[in-house]
Design a binder for these strands. Structure first.
Lengths: 189, 189
DNA sequence: TAAAAAGGAATGAATGTTCATTCCGCAATA
DNA sequence: TATTGCGGAATGAACATTCATTCCTTTTTA
């Protein structure tokens, strides 16, 4: 299991550094040092730096999508579905410390290949479908789904960013309050 | 006024490129080409690339702060104050096409000096004070001001990003709908 | 007024630095 | 001992920055 561990270490270190500094400001030697491997070793596992960032991006975007889709209550109310989405977003960020910030920071990157873009679109499509359904049922605000996604996603990620920076401690009460706030921002009043 | 124009050109071009690609992915020759000046000319006006980005950052952050502070209705309702803030944010983004995205993308940059950070904190402080007052009056939701800022700021910038990318056309109706959505996310229900 | 000189701004080729990537010798494993 | 994996110095490309030179405007001189 040594090989797997080494690859995992590289991925983990790259994720943290990319999330913190961004792709362009992160050097390969930096990643190597952080992962306790030689710079050359990284090239045994990834063809180059771009392949590394695309692999990470796809892995985490797909993991995020799966987390949200998993157990989605299709036959329940929009409010319950929203709760599921919110819960899943929290779950995903808890299980993958830097992932959501990494995704956010790189989702418009000049180095993303077609597959990465397709995977990201798939994630957005899930949200789009959810909001469209909600609008049909007059439960969700009559705004373009693009805009609703931006509000929910933008707010959530900025909050997550605060938590990451240690400027906000999350307890059950706060989580509940945030869910309410985000729900009120998208629901039909 | 030739000198002023040249410096302004450099600032304008750098702003657009930094907003689009980020500091690290933007090269000085790129800025020079965009500004129709020689690479060396940039160094006649700015000591180096970091000084350039800090100058831009401070200029626009302070302009943003001033725009929001200008004519702030201190003696009116929180709702009216919120309307002023929202209007000012829209005004600022209309008057300075790339500025808010540039600010957003670089406000945690590893190249920002103390002055830049102080100026940014000052901007946040304005929001903080507003939300604190609103909470005292039980008009604003009982969440940490940090979190309220993140929600408002995160959502707004993500929306602005959509507009910039041409994926959302703004008319008066949409603007009104967005203001309602954002207000509902921070107001006490 | 015309010609010449000076002063300062602008340039872009040249320089030194930093980075992604390669490659070769070493170490671990079998 | 042979094979495979590893590390990190070496390499070349791309970058930020410098600087010798050009260009233009203003001033001086005849």
């Amino acid at each position: 299991m040594k090989t797997l561990n080494k690859r995992d270490n590289i991925m983990k270190s790259a994720l943290a550094l990319f999330a913190e500094r961004g792709f362009d400001a992160t050097t390969v030697p930096m990643i190597a040092t952080e992962a306790n491997v030689g710079a050359g070793t990284i090239y045994r596992y990834f063809e180059n730096k771009e392949v590394l960032v695309n692999t990470l991006f796809q892995d985490y975007v797909n993991m995020f999508t799966k987390t949200i889709e998993d157990g989605f209550p299709f036959d329940q109310t929009i409010r319950k579905q929203f709760h599921h989405i919110f819960k899943s977003m929290i779950l995903f960020t808890n299980q993958n410390e830097h992932a959501i910030y990494f995704i956010k920071k790189h989702s418009a990157g000049h180095f993303l290949n077609d597959q990465s873009q397709t995977d990201f679109t798939q994630l957005l499509n899930f949200f789009r479908t959810f909001f469209n359904t909600g609008k049909q049922k007059s439960v969700i605000r009559n705004l373009p789904s693009e805009a609703l996604i931006a509000i929910l996603y933008g707010a959530f990620i900025e909050l997550q960013n605060l938590v990451r920076a240690g400027e906000l401690d999350v307890d059950q009460d706060l989580l509940f309050g945030i869910e309410e706030s985000l729900w009120d921002s998208v629901r039909q009043q």
